[in-house]
């Protein structure tokens, strides 16, 4: 168990538009879902309705791509206010975003842009994470990103930076073992060293995904199955953290729901207890509180880095 007492939700799936109908119609035996926050802000249409409906049956975690934790623009409190409202509305178990920046001078590049890892950026980022956590009234959970450049001004490794950030800002960690593998290939470090150095008691969640290997570099595409090396890293992480909420991301060339679910469930082989769903769907109504501690009562309610933004096929316009 992590130091925040965020529960092990079991093995979850990233909630994607193409699976809405399947989930609503069949109510699959999935432990939990992770929703991309930005897809459900500023919309009163079908996405929000679907999320709220699913949240009545499954635990939900909100995962963002636009918080710009490491950015040098002012913190966007309008965004945070809406995020907080959404989290309360769907009883989100926690809120996560990436160790990155997404734009400056009022612009958003909609990418998870890399940070230099040095004292200046550590102090800057830790201060922002503290402010964000205070505002959201819950410890922010920060994910390690994939990256394709290393800065000349970096003076520490990413894992040392992340550990120091977690200690200074008292945040949780979302350990993306695929991202560790991708960055280790791109930057030439041993991914096992990274996994071994992470403060295990701060790991709230793990991400799994596929990627595209171009020979000279790897791109974090989320468009494929998880490779064996990443599964081994996952097992290594689980050995340190114990059973931890685990999430399969599949954001491009998305297959049918059962294929994604089957890939996610491979994680069971690496989990110590062999059981999933602790605190998840099978224990729905166990009294655990989400972000803000409010349980919803109403009955109705990039690929990284690109969240799906489009109306689903089953809600397309019809000529009348």
């Amino acid at each position: 168990m992590n130091r925040f007492n965020f529960p092990d939700l079991g093995i979850g799936i990233g909630l994607r538009t193409v699976h809405y109908a399947h989930i609503l119609d069949t109510q699959p035996d999935v432990d939990w879902f992770e929703a991309l926050s930005e897809n459900y802000l500023d919309t009163g249409g079908r996405p929000r309705y679907v999320l709220e409906t699913i949240a009545e049956r499954y635990p939900i975690v909100l995962h963002g791509v636009s918080m710009s934790i490491g950015g040098t623009d002012p913190i966007d409190f309008d965004y945070l206010r809406k995020l907080k409202e959404l989290a309360r509305g769907v009883n989100a178990r926690w809120i996560s975003d990436h160790l990155c920046w997404t734009g400056v001078s009022g612009r958003n590049v909609h990418d998870l842009l890399p940070m230099p890892y040095n004292e200046e950026s550590l102090r800057h980022t830790a201060a922002r994470v503290r402010v964000i956590s205070d505002f959201l009234e819950t410890p922010l959970v920060v994910e390690n990103p994939s990256s394709y450049v290393e800065f000349a001004t970096s003076t520490m490794t990413e894992w040392d930076f992340l550990a120091a950030l977690a200690a200074e800002s008292d945040c949780g960690l979302l350990l993306d073992v695929n991202n560790i593998y991708v960055s280790s290939f791109n930057h030439g470090f041993d991914p096992k060293t990274y996994v071994d150095a992470i403060p295990a008691d701060r790991v709230v969640q793990v991400h799994l995904a596929g990627h595209a290997n171009h020979g000279t570099h790897i791109i974090d595409t989320h468009d494929n199955v998880v490779i064996d090396e990443v599964w081994q890293l996952y097992g290594r992480a689980c050995a340190r953290t114990g059973d931890v909420s685990t999430l399969m991301e599949w954001d491009a060339n998305i297959p049918d729901f059962e294929t994604v679910h089957a890939e996610a469930r491979k994680a069971e082989a690496f989990r110590g207890s062999g059981e999933s769903g602790v605190g998840g769907r099978r224990r729905k109504g166990s009294g655990e509180s989400g972000v803000g501690g409010r349980r919803k009562s109403s009955s109705k309610s990039l690929r990284h880095p690109t969240p799906d933004t489009r109306p689903p096929q089953d809600a397309e316009a019809v000529h009348v």
Binding site: T72, R107, V109, L113, P116, F151
Partner: peptide, 15 residues
Amino acid sequence: LALAPLQEWMQSVVT
């Protein structure tokens, strides 16, 4: 090469 100008630089190149 401080954080703010570095981010400005990178954004200008990327976009």
